[in-house]
Design a protein around this nucleic acid. Sequence first.
RNA 1: GCCGGGAUGGGGUAGGGGUAUCCUAAGGGACUGUGGAUCCCUCGACCCGGGUUCGAAUCCCGGUCCCGGCCCCA
Length: 415
Amino acid sequence: MNNMISKPRGTRDFLPDEMEKRKVLENIMRDVAERYGYREVSTPTFEHLELFTKKSGESILKEIYHFKDKSGRDLALRPELTAAVTRMILEECHAMPRPLRFYYFSNCFRYERPQKGRYREFWQFGVELVGSSMPQADVEVIALAYDIMKSAGVDFSLHVGHVGILRDMLKDFKGETAQLMRLIDKKDHKGLQESLESLNAPEELIEKTLTFTKLLGGPEILDEAETIAGSSEHIDYLRGVCEMLDLLKLDYSVDLGIARGLDYYTGVVFEAYAEGLGAQNQICGGGSYRLAHLFGSRDIPSTGFALGFDRIAELSQFKKEERGLIAVVSVKGYEKEAIKTARELRTRYQVVTDVMGRNMKNQLSNASDIGAKLAVIIGKEEVEQGFITVKNLETGKQWKSSIDELISGYEQFLE
RNA sequence: GCCGGGAUGGGGUAGGGGUAUCCUAAGGGACUGUGGAUCCCUCGACCCGGGUUCGAAUCCCGGUCCCGGCCCCA
């Protein structure tokens, strides 16, 4: 056993108990997204490597699973889905009425050091709302993320911000924006200050930037933001978004220090954090972005988010509903009647029969081990007299019955 | 890529240079038409490679994997 091949680093097996829980959660998320009118899409597990390097730069190469196929094409396992969905939309969805409302639930792959809440194969549930640059679009997507996380039974705090305001403040440092945004995203105020100093930023701007990125609270902090950054369409826009979020009674904080590192986020951005996950406490990230130009197309205003499905699954307490398993057990010599009976019962119930050649005693023992509610006993008497014995495995009571009677409902055998 | 802690039957563990412990799960029997209790039996382990040693699960070196953190986080 020692030389057995084990699963690759950072991957996981899911046993039935866990798989059932994940399935319940997955269906809840699908259900909420569909209530908002979103429809599921799926893209290939691997894409041309270029799709991802164009979007995120060559630096992601070290965190991506990439390979050459037999024809020498450079391919990569998808590290996320926004780029792939954007590619799909540009490639296939020209004629569809706008806006597009898509959701996805897919596995993604990143070559990173595994730790709590971080795996090399992980699942993301996400949505993209494509075609609108109205605040209503941001509000819809934020509310959808909120409702999904609520429905999943997770305690989280939602932070909403806007990257446009910061970008305007830092517009004199165009070449360094990405680097500065990264420091802001990390809440590395000291690093940010040093970085700005080394760029010879005016002292006043440094101070403003530091104060601004620390702004966190209710929508009223937008007034403060205006004092610091001056009035702007971005602040007005964010104020409008907040008004609608308040109208929908969402619980959130305005956080002007959200930067989301990447260049393609252009407007409202949001993140959600949960307790109990160690260092990886972010369970949701999203915002509005412009990505199409990277693929040589006219830009389409889009808003989306991705949820860390595995992290939410770890926090979630859901359990699959019991289906009421039935075991058909047989006396030696009556196995054939048992499998026939089982098949008929399967028109309505989840039913198992013995495939181990066990005696009846052990079949019953196994039936209670696997959690069966009822056992159906098939033997000489039953076959000759044309009935079935139904036994309640919790109470031990049993009845003479018929297949039809059992199929009509098993509540009658629950006392 | 970096730092720390780990790895003993399927799961959980004790031991820490010489015989590998216990619990549990699983399979069977006591009981060939009635389960859960009990008793008995069976199955099954020192992560991998090298070194030190008469002898290594134990000590040393290297690796792999796991856990936590750093970096990163599209």
